[in-house]
């Protein structure tokens, strides 16, 4: 899902490769890109399931406004993945309500 060569932008400039974990699986992305972009490149669509109706949500506005794309990042819930930059060794989990586990209160 990454653009290899773009007619206007040429080769998209990327930071160095970093490893991170998505629900325990090791993945690769680039330093300086948002968590949301890195996950989207890997085809991850569902970032969380809502508290009340347990419905899937993903990236919606991508500018830090709608807060739909939040996930659990390094143990902390409700982190806006579109505004948070990917870092080496980050631990990113699907958010269920506000929890990292599929346990509904």
């Amino acid at each position: 899902m990454r653009i290899k060569e773009h007619p206007i932008l040429g080769t998209i400039k990327k930071g160095k490769k970093v490893k991170y974990y998505y629900n325990g699986t090791e993945m690769e992305g680039y330093k300086g890109e948002s968590i949301a972009a890195a996950l989207h490149a890997e085809g991850v669509m569902v970032h969380r399931y809502t508290s009340k109706l347990h419905k899937p949500r993903g990236v919606f506005c991508a500018i830090g406004r709608c807060t739909d794309c939040v996930m659990i990042v390094d143990g902390k819930p409700n982190i806006r993945t579109c505004m948070t930059l990917l870092k080496e060794g980050m631990y990113i989990e699907t958010q269920y309500g506000i929890s990292g586990k599929e346990v509904w209160q």
């Binding site: 919606f60 506005c61 406004r65 709608c66 807060t67 739909d68 939040v70 409700n78």
Partner: peptide, 8 residues
């Protein structure tokens, strides 16, 4: 009243 405070 949620996380985004009604922005949408």
């Amino acid at each position: 009243m949620g996380l985004c405070q009604g922005q949408t």
